[in-house]
Amino acid sequence: MLWTVLLALLVLLVLQTQLCVCLRELRSGGSGSPSYLSSSSSSSSSSSSSNATQQRLPGAIIIGVRKGGTRALLEMLNLHPDVEVAKAEVHFFNVEEHYRRGLAWYRAQMPFTLPGQVTVEKTPGYFAAPQVPARVWDMNPAVRLLLIVRDPAERLVSDYTQVLHNRLTRHKPYQPLEELLLHKGHIDPGYKALQRSLYHQHLARWLEVFPREQIHVVDGDALIRDPFPELRKAERFLDLPPRISPNNFYYNTTKGFYCLMSAGHDKCLDESKGRPHAPLSAEAFRELCRYFREPNKLFFEMVGRSFSWC
């Protein structure tokens, strides 16, 4: 009887030992993920990494023109969920100090975006700077370029008005526009603001580098009168699905121009927009319009469309 009990205890001890070994092996095997889970986890991690936001070089640049409506165009494009914009003018390609810092510095000025979103920056000084087209091409030959133009005579007066405002704010003297614009009763071609309005000269340099279909011309005067049609054209040019609607705009009677509406929040451009122009006599303005007549025709031929300018 005693031997039977001892034998039973021995069998139980052996079984317990084997059970412990099995449990230890199970724990050891279970500490790592099965191969399909490891693969799935790796795939998920890779997917998560590829979907992470990061700063990317721009896929589109608003290259000008100065005082043509570049800020309005940028803010309106930013209504699109697939667009992220650089908040400040970067001046990478037209300022030597910035350009020497390289593309890594330029990329660091861009917003964070998801794959599939378009990064847009705007620097109106790019359009008239001779060195810029080749530099932009070197950065990305496939980049989309947006050029917003307005009546060159009105643009010139607006350009002068901004400079005048800045100088008065700093308590610095500045000549009246007519003195800068006219020399012995004739237009002075050396006036810098006038040179910026010679659109055909600057566009010719861009077309030496980029094909015409890569440059989209936005009618700045039409953008002010009725923004939506111009934004729809810009969406198509950027290969974006149509997401901007007429409901994104409302006319502010106090300011005298359209403001933006998105997700129940409205936004109007700053007080510099719509600032009254500096005075210029009707005679001087007519002379200015006559001066621009031929350059405007050349520009119309280059872009294959005409505008209702003076």
Rank of each mutant, 00 (worst) to 15 (best):
Y258T: 01
E84V: 11
S47D: 01
P133K: 05
A282L: 11
Y191H: 08
R205T: 03
K172M: 15
L23K: 15
L164E: 15
R71E: 11
V136R: 02
F292T: 03
V120Q: 03
Y250G: 04
D219S: 10
C289T: 05
G30T: 05
R305S: 13
D159F: 04
L9Q: 04
S158P: 01
L74G: 02
W206P: 00
T4C: 08
L240K: 02
A128Q: 09
R275G: 05
G30W: 14
A282V: 10
D188V: 03
P81W: 11
K267E: 14
H98P: 02
Y291V: 05
H171Y: 12
M1A: 13
H200E: 15
F300T: 07
A222G: 11
E25K: 13
A234S: 15
P241M: 09
T123N: 03
D239N: 04
W309A: 09
P229S: 09
G274F: 11
A284W: 01
S42C: 10
S31D: 13
P81L: 10
V90F: 09
G190I: 04
G30A: 15
L26P: 00
T123W: 01
T123R: 02
S47C: 02
E235W: 00
E96S: 12
V143Q: 08
Q18V: 09
L37Y: 13
R144Y: 05
R66F: 14
Y36W: 15
Q214V: 03
R27G: 08
F292H: 08
L238K: 02
Q162M: 15
D138A: 14
A193E: 14
R205M: 08
A278V: 14
G256L: 10
Q16C: 10
G59T: 03
Y258V: 03
G220Q: 04
M139W: 02
R24E: 13
V11D: 06
P111W: 08
W309D: 01
E208M: 07
E154K: 12
D82T: 01
M1C: 09
Q109S: 06
R170V: 07
P115M: 00
H216P: 03
I224S: 08
A263H: 12
R100S: 13
I61Y: 01
D239G: 01
Y99D: 00
R24H: 10
N296P: 01
Y126T: 04
V83D: 03
S308A: 13
R275P: 02
K172T: 07
E178N: 06
K67Y: 12
F285E: 02
L146P: 01
I244A: 09
H91F: 14
I244W: 08
S28R: 14
D82L: 15
V120E: 06
R205G: 04
A142Y: 04
P141Y: 03
E89R: 06
R167S: 10
V85Q: 05
P133I: 02
A8C: 08
A282R: 12
N248Y: 08
